[in-house]
Design a protein around this nucleic acid. Structure first.
Lengths: 338, 338
DNA sequence: CTGAAAGCGCTTACAG
DNA sequence: CTGAAAGCGCTTACAG
């Protein structure tokens, strides 16, 4: 490897650790060689020689399998690239959680990946702080309390979703909010309202939902009964969007001809129901990769940047499927106006 | 550590690996010292010194996320326990596949986990054999060609599913087969027919399906048209079971009151449709764990057992939900007969 | 059966 | 900014 790049193994090591003290041309030679040889750092050797976090603990509590698989593939790809080893821990309840973390701590793990429910638990954070461990929170409810965090940009994607519907010609757009305790749900509502305001639309019917199919059913009924009937409904997640579709069908409304319905998260139900739901995807894999990179960088920086904080927010992707279209009473297209 | 026990570190190492060539008194001294010092073997050092495969490559091609997440959690848990590192590779097509494997091989990976489509590709196996790499096939189409494999017991679970329906009182049970090219599908049919035969039921209507929703629709129509109407339908996977439910509803048959419908695999659709589908779960995580353990054991055994073969078959789990019940014209319960 | 030697692939700490 | 040396904790292969 060092031969391939024409440098000493020392230089290779430095480049692979961030290469702060290596000149650009040398760095490039090393990267080229890495690529050519498909070189992978030997985790065991690194761990043995004693640098960097060689093991990172990932603590998850019953997430959806879609979420988990993306999280794992993202984390695994990045960590194998950086020569870190992932150690998994699932927990059924909060008691498991702390005891699992304690045992990881005892076995020398000092870096953690904490997806949402775990990073919101005070006892977990307490434990980690005491042990002087490092963690990055993934989609935390509260950004402020975490030195490192990665989140999806719910505000932005909700705004784009609403803007898209407005662009399709919708003006009366109903919104089914998520559980009020949810940070992501609140952000989505905020993004929606901002986009409505930007378009100069004052009337914004919002009904409270709780992310469940049942709550979606009820919220949709209320929305459809309200005086000015909507031509589009934005549900704060796919389950509620699916519920909205079923209520629409019950009322003999065709989706999307009579009513556009969209959701969020791109969960399995969004592709299974008919029509397939227009929704938005969170960049879970990228979030995990980012998180691993942050852990790595932080460990490399060492004590130096002990007070550094990083909050990363990644954009979501809009996925247009069959449940959205322009409203029946289409306003004149711009071309016709000119 | 060696000092504490008054022996050489070599002896310590030998004892800790099973101590076959060490005398009892020495072994006891070592164990006592281990206990006293709370000594823990350094996995990294062991891996570095070159025992066991430290890295295993996992090659997957667009599996379902549910499958992937279980496979990864299983593989990851076991490999972190054994001090092995997992390296992931996804491929979009078969060309990717071989080139990705080649690059892993070049980087020194000699142990592979090969889930189904990859382990059935002749070019992949050819590549691996040439490189003298070791692999364990997960759910291969053909067991014979793999020295190591792990599979789910489709024959057994299908038999149990059928037996359960018979126990509920069903006699006229229709079966929608899977793609004829699928090994698992064939095994399920075989298991079903065996159970029917064991119960002395001669009439076994079987319609060909292809695992798709559409094929399930058609097969169900054919099954319902056949002279002796079934009281239960076993579809070879959940998608076809969901299709069967929708056909039943179209014919104004209530599920499960008028018709029991069951599937296999416990995919998301099974819990989303109404009624939720009775199905069976494959032990994916356990299969991955087994596979990792086999890789580890094989590497430990070394050249000695070069010709050893291991085919592991794990049982599936029956999940009874809402789509199955006894038939309407319930035969007299046994108690009433006596 | 037991031990002295050499090395796994990296990194730290020390020179230039 | 770059490199030569020594060592992390184990194991392999070789002597006794």
């Amino acid at each position: 490897m060092a031969d391939e790049a024409g440098v000493s193994r020392m230089t290779v090591s430095r480049v692979l650790r961030g290469g702060h003290l290596v000149r650009a041309p040398l760095q490039e030679r090393v990267f080229a060689a890495v690529k050519k040889l498909n070189y992978r750092l030997n985790v065991s050797a690194r761990a043995l020689a004693g640098s960097g976090p060689s093991r990172v603990g990932l603590v998850y509590s019953n997430p959806s399998q879609a979420f988990l698989s993306e999280l794992l593939t993202g984390a695994l790809k990045e960590s194998s690239k950086l020569g870190m080893q992932l150690t998994l821990t699932a927990d059924a309840d909060s008691h498991d959680r702390t005891s699992e973390i304690e045992s990881l701590l005892r076995s020398g793990v000092t870096s953690f990946l904490l997806p949402s429910p775990a990073c919101d638990a005070p006892d977990v954070l307490e434990l980690l702080r005491e042990a002087k461990a490092r963690w990055v929170a993934i989609s935390p409810a509260n950004l402020e309390i975490h030195p490192f965090s990665v989140s999806a940009d719910h505000f932005d994607i909700a705004g784009r979703m609403t803007a898209r519907l407005i662009e399709l010609g919708h003006r009366r757009i109903g919104f089914i909010a998520g559980d009020p305790a949810s940070k992501g749900g609140a952000e989505r509502l905020r993004g929606h309202l901002r986009a409505m305001a930007s378009a100069g639309i004052a009337e914004c019917p919002v009904e409270q939902g709780y992310f469940t199919f049942q709550s979606g059913l009820e919220a949709t009924e209320r929305l459809l009964k309200s005086t000015a009937a909507c031509t589009a409904i934005i549900a704060c997640n796919d389950d509620m969007a699916a519920a909205a579709i079923s209520v629409a069908h019950r009322h003999h409304l065709n989706v999307p001809e009579d009513l556009t319905i969209v959701g969020f998260d791109d969960t399995p139900i969004a592709s299974i129901v008919s029509p397939a739901i227009t929704t938005a995807r969170q960049p879970i894999a990228e979030m995990a990769q980012s998180a691993i990179r942050m852990l790595h960088a932080a460990a490399m920086a060492g004590e130096a940047d002990e007070n550094k904080r990083t909050q990363k927010v990644l954009p979501c992707t809009l996925i247009e499927r069959e449940s959205s279209a322009g409203p029946r009473e289409q306003p004149l297209p711009e071309a016709a106006l000119s």
